[in-house]
Amino acid sequence: MLTYIAKRVIYTLPIMLGVAIVCFLLVHLAPGDPLVSVLPPDASEQLRQQMLALYGFDRPYAEQFIKWLGRAIGGDLGTSIRTNRPVVAEVGKAVSNTLMLAALATVIGFVLGGLFGFVAGSFRDTWIDKVASAISVAGVSVPHYWLGMVLVIIFSAQLGWLPPTGAGPGGSDNWHWDWAHIRHMILPAVTMSVIPMGIIARTVRALVAEILSQEFIAGLKAKGTSSFGIFRHIVKNAAPTALAVMGIQLGYLLGGSILIETVFSWPGTGLLLSDAIFQRDLPLLQGTILVLASFFVVLNLCVDVVQTAIDPRIARS
């Protein structure tokens, strides 16, 4: 078990290095001048050279990368060109906002998806299964940014129950646990939860149907085990896979929050990323992508390790 974890961690290191290289090179795909957003169009050549030297853009890529990586490991992602504030501070605040939204969405999605999937798998090929499966297919097929707009139309524009944008009253981006802030979270979290809901429902349905068809269930029934006892067996067998899917989904939501955050102006990593892209803020772009991708890699590692701890057969295969 410990050897497996050690192996898995060591295997992650080159992946992390690769991810860092991709993040670094990504922004150099960009055509044009990295300073286009701060320099006035009529800036003198001398000023341009000074600025290039200030941000280190005049050095060779390899040198820039090693310096960047060295500082990133030490927790310094450089300075945002646009706001002139440390990238780490900008990203840190945005990550906590997005993490909160994604975590709530994952929990909602897991509870609803688990319920629909369990019901569908237990009543396989009946109308109940068809309805529950239809909901889960709709969940994975719906363009969630559109769903967000529809929810805004219904609950903000028509009914006026919930605020359409922002994370708090008066455009506040500092989170507090009070009703004024929680109200802002409901629509984006529900919108976001639709994706994991559909995927978890489909996974759980297949798992439950598979477990129910196994011989030990027939044995338990013949032994006179109560339906609750059988339910416990199903949960115990389905939980490791379902939880792993949930963990990976949380990672996807963290990385893919940009569309929903754009619809709801949620002050998270997605909105930050979109600002960085459209204002050509290269250090901010590199930093945000690196943080989000690292989160995803580490989350995958954790899911693997936890899954192995629950079910040691995985380490042996």
Binding site: G255, I258, L259, L273, L285, I289, L292, F296
Partner: peptide, 14 residues
């Protein structure tokens, strides 16, 4: 190792 939506947006954004 990248979440798919993030990579697609980062690439086309860049």
């Amino acid at each position: 190792a990248f979440p798919s939506v993030l990579l697609a947006i980062a690439l086309s954004g860049a």
